[in-house]
């Protein structure tokens, strides 16, 4: 076996943001299915929430490289 533990660490760090992104999109789909005309209003919020959660996974990726 070779490689670095950082990869395992990044895998663990990606679980939380993965669930978070899924929740955000699920909520948006539910909202849009109930009220299709609200899609335009909630779309900026969708992307902002997505970006705020996604950056957590990317921090993990950057740290996996920075700490090696």
């Amino acid at each position: 076996m070779e490689g670095t533990l950082n990869v395992v660490g990044y895998g663990l760090a990606a679980i939380g943001p993965g669930i978070g992104v899924a929740l955000i999109f699920a909520a948006w789909i539910t909202a849009t299915a109930r009220q299709p005309e609200s899609a335009g209003i909630t779309r900026p919020m969708l992307f902002m929430g997505f970006a705020l959660v996604e950056v957590l996974a990317l921090f993990g990726l950057v740290l996996a490289f920075a700490l090696s």
């Binding site: 990317l58 921090f59 950057v62």
Partner: peptide
């Protein structure tokens, strides 16, 4: 960091 990490 968000922009950097995405492109990286």
């Amino acid at each position: 960091l968000r922009l950097f990490a995405n492109m990286f």
